[in-house]
Amino acid sequence: MKKENAIYVENLTKMFGDFTAVNNISFEVGKGEVFGFLGANGAGKTTAMKMLIGILKPTSGHAQVASFDVASQADEVKKSIGYMSQRFSLYNDLTIKENITFFGGIYGLKKSVIKEKTQELIDELGLKDEANKLVKSLPLGWKQKVAFSVSLLHNPRIIFLDEPTGGVDPITRRQFWEMIYREAHKGKTIFVTTHYMDEAEYCDRVSIMVEGKIEALDTPKNLKTQYKVDSMNQVFLKLARNIE
């Protein structure tokens, strides 16, 4: 089951005691794909994501990320992916520059490379005047854009984004998605969770998890056709309601 530069999941399961948080899920994500991983709170998204980024051992089943096994080659997985979330992104008490240097060091980049990347990143984001300011003084939307760029420092093949745009203003939210598109265009694979259903429409394909299982997986267009509705929001409501 060796697959190149993508995500491959087969019968992945995670149990906590008697509770099955992730129940036998299987799917694949192609190279350069923007894959939306949706579900209600408590559906098992976070648990599944933790297994894929190599920080939680599956109870059974397999998963390969960037062609490494998440259980036996977790360290290799971590080197091949970028990760950012809404809850933890950057250190508030460090400046933008210091954050970049710090994460560059964590990823084991050479000093000269870090210096070069720092300049590149600050120019790209147009943050010259803010580079030496503490991260906590930035608006959330900017923080998230910087965090996304930082997660790309070590040139990962796959990027995991856990609710990257929650609470972000509508204009910055869209700029953030343009950054996502740009990276996908360059061939990076994007795995993203969101509660904004308009963002679900920006994905190439989406899966919807309900109570530990993947209940639907297709392009937004096909899902809307299948459930005979005209928005992803309605698809989501229909799926989660029908289960009750």
Partner: peptide, 13 residues
């Protein structure tokens, strides 16, 4: 104050 932030669409509704 932001009772529905981070809450999925079904629970929000």
């Amino acid at each position: 104050d932001e009772p529905t932030t981070g809450v999925d669409p079904v629970s929000r509704k």
